[in-house]
């Protein structure tokens, strides 16, 4: 009896935690407008429900593989593909966050730099690439 009670409590806690984290993640991605942005780029608004499903299936399946420790034993060059896609997603997150914080419009207006805004955007892009490469190649090994 006691065991059954514990069992139910643990299921409840797990489910509640998952609900909170899952809805939090969806809210975060929604606020940052990443799915609408990608649909706009490829002019594919009609596939927007599929993109939402992709997000959900990705989150659930990766959680499962991670927790269960499912090992695929695939050749290592496949991680190049995974790494690239993960990087693109993080890059979009970073871009969206910068945009939410209004950094570039304020710079353009305050410092009178509207005409060089693309150059400044490229500064951030190259800064991110350089920072990330520095992190993995120099910072971590030493």
């Amino acid at each position: 009896m006691m065991q059954l009670f514990q069992f139910i409590i643990i299921i409840m806690i797990g489910l509640a935690g998952g609900l909170a984290v899952g809805s939090g993640m969806v809210a975060f991605i929604t606020v940052l407008d990443i799915i609408p942005r990608l649909s706009q780029l490829i002019k594919g608004y009609q596939y927007i429900t599929w993109f939402q499903r992709a997000l959900m299936i990705g989150a659930v399946s990766f959680t499962w593989f991670d927790f269960r420790g499912t090992v695929f034993h695939l050749p290592s060059f496949l991680t190049v593909i995974i790494g690239s896609f993960a990087g693109i997603f993080v890059g979009m997150l970073a871009g969206a966050l910068t945009e939410v914080l209004n950094v570039l419009p304020i710079l353009a207006k305050r410092l009178n730099m509207a005409h060089v805004i693309i150059i400044l955007l490229m500064a951030m892009v190259f800064g991110k690439i350089a920072g990330s490469l520095f992190h993995w190649l120099i910072y971590i090994p030493n």
């Binding site: 991680t79 190049v80 690239s84 693109i88 993080v90 890059g91 979009m92 945009e99 190259f126 990330s132």
Partner: peptide, 15 residues
């Protein structure tokens, strides 16, 4: 990690 780093730049440009 190297493709990941380059991907970050590509993602920002796409955004």
């Amino acid at each position: 990690q190297i493709p990941y780093s380059l991907g970050i730049g590509l993602g920002m440009i796409l955004f």
